[in-house]
Design a protein around this nucleic acid. Structure first.
Lengths: 342, 342
DNA sequence: ACGCCAAATGACAACGCTGTCAATTCTAAT
DNA sequence: ATTAGAATTGACAGCGTTGTCATTTGGCGT
């Protein structure tokens, strides 16, 4: 029933090896032969069996995406970016969400790699920032591409695609400063993500370069969630020294802050500016729409996948990728600071 | 380097076939032998190669999840539900989002099934409701479980997990009626999804059984998106006969309606009640929080995956599953109809 | 102790492909 | 024409499992 390489070989009157060569686009096949084989493939609607291919060869045609589950929009964007590249190159994608806090992730992941013989792995924070996870995996001989926060590659364990959160956060903060704000609250994300750290650094850097004092009381720890945004904003807005603007570490936190402000009847942006980070779809679904920094997740993911697959093909470590700097997007949640409204 | 079945066999001093029997939990292996082998497996940290297993055997250890991309929260919930079951049973998950509107989905999917030799497929609407997609796939001999909207199985092509949207929509509408509303707008989702149809039917049924006339002018076509909710709500709220309540076909549409009402300075729920459907996370992140119907996506997905894997194992068609009825969740976006506020 | 039968185990081919290396065919220079 | 040397092609052995069927083992009745 199923069409195999043998059927194609028979039909094209060549050896299976030649068919294999055509499939793999190897150079030394005469054009006439190639045509014959391709014709046969087409006529029989032949589809090579991936399991057999990876069993026989040293290559594999699966890549895995490993992530903790921070937020749905982020994950979907990343998946879609990777999938786009996979589709283009004929790879399949296995997805592996894991809980970063569980004790035996290392075993779980090594088992997965062993069993599925994946060719490569795309990893996002926080795993991508945990050497104790990356190292054993990389020693198993899988290619790994990590998406990490930062300006510089953190180590030599594996290549990375970098997101310069600090630079972007600096721009975000500068936007608030340009609007006249000087008392700017910062709602931090989970510190297991390097991005929180980087964004905080950017925030501080912007303040400093504008001669504004960094006040610890304005920096609220938290995590990347709506609820954390609500709590953090409440804390800021109930303090003695209320900020006139809030920089939320991501859009979810910003949405939470928006919610908290709404409860307190604080008008956005007239009485308070709020800015998010990431530009996930719901930054356009809040009221008012969120100003934010656009992080091109899908592009980043596709880029990472492309590098990974290229490296897998070449059997060598992939070259370094460029850096991405999220860009400021001004919508309706940030406005000029106006003393009279306070 | 890699540990294979041969290494285990050697260590346990048995044949590889016996090791295979132990791995596959076949009956006829003496307990003492089984222990020896298991010991060896443990000591060597042996992990069977899935590619080889599916190449040699008739089984496969991959299942695929095929979906169009309606909304991120839905997809993630479904994925996580399926993955939970996969993890439990040692399966891997391939994900295959496709565009329902693209012309060659059928080819794309048959190719995928051929290449990856997946054991089974979990399908969500709208694919699960398209016989022209389901049939050719099912003829290839893959098990398929479909998640579909409805009370009854639509056909015999493959087993389904049913979501009784009509019943739930009836309850949702009844909730609004119980609050005193009789002029209730309906914001429909995309009609390529059967769920829209079912929900509309439920809405009509509730009105009728309460002796309320169904008015076409109150039923607005649309699709499952925030933007569609904004537009639809605008249309309803600018009509001559304004509704006092709006039933949105899902939470995204409801969020859009909320947004539109906010723009028009209409107070929710005092001047207008809005109810959603699905209970996705952001129904708790809007202002005010959305009343909605809770659709237990993750549970549904896990259930579907469990059925699928069981069927795969047994090499037989899975039994029918029970039906799920989303339950009303009352939050802050619905309130009593009060003529004085109009 | 013997033989019989079911239970337990093993030998070996097969799954569909790629890697290796040898065989064949072609090209172009003599 | 010949022939070296390069370009093509093919034969065959795996890859790590499972399926099939033959063989061995152990238990039990006599």
């Amino acid at each position: 029933m199923k069409v195999t390489i043998n059927d194609v070989a028979k039909k094209a009157a060549v050896s299976i090896k030649t068919v294999s060569r055509v499939i793999n686009k190897e150079a030394s096949v005469r054009q006439a032969t190639r045509d014959k084989v391709e014709q046969a493939i087409l006529e029989l609607n032949y589809q090579p069996n991936l399991a057999a291919r990876s069993l026989a060869g040293t290559k594999s045609y699966n890549i895995a995406f490993i992530y903790d589950n921070p937020n749905a929009y982020y994950v979907i964007d990343m998946q879609n970016g990777i999938l786009q590249e996979c589709k283009k190159q004929g790879y399949e994608l296995l997805i592996h969400p894991c809980n970063a806090k569980s004790a035996n992730i290392k075993d779980e992941l090594t088992t997965m790699v062993n069993q599925s013989r994946v060719a490569g792995i795309v990893m996002t924070p926080p795993f991508s920032e945990m050497p104790e996870i990356v190292e054993p995996l990389s020693q198993m001989g899988v290619q790994i591409i990590r998406i990490v926060s930062g300006k510089e590659q953190p180590d030599d364990l594996s290549p990375c695609v970098m997101i310069d959160d600090k630079e972007a956060a600096k721009n975000v903060t500068q936007h608030l400063i340009d609007l006249g704000h000087s008392c700017i609250g910062f709602l931090n994300g989970g510190m297991e993500h390097r991005s929180s750290y980087e964004r905080l650094e950017g925030y501080k850097a912007a303040l400093e370069s504008n001669g504004i004092e960094v006040r610890q009381s304005l920096i609220v720890p938290g995590e990347y969630s709506f609820e954390s945004g609500v709590e953090g904003a409440n804390r800021l807005l109930e303090a003695e020294q209320k900020p006139t603007a809030i920089f939320a570490c991501n859009d979810e936190i910003a949405a939470g802050a928006l919610f908290a402000a709404r409860l307190k009847n604080i008008a956005i942006p007239n009485q308070l500016s709020i800015i998010g980070f990431e530009d996930s779809p719901f930054s356009r679904q809040t009221w008012p729409k969120l100003s934010t920094a656009h992080q091109p997740n899908q592009t980043i993911a596709q880029h990472a996948a492309a590098l990974l697959i290229a490296a897998t093909r070449a059997q060598q470590s992939p070259e370094q990728s460029e850096r991405f700097i999220p860009e400021l997007v001004v919508r309706d949640s940030t406005g000029r600071y106006d003393c009279s409204t306070q």
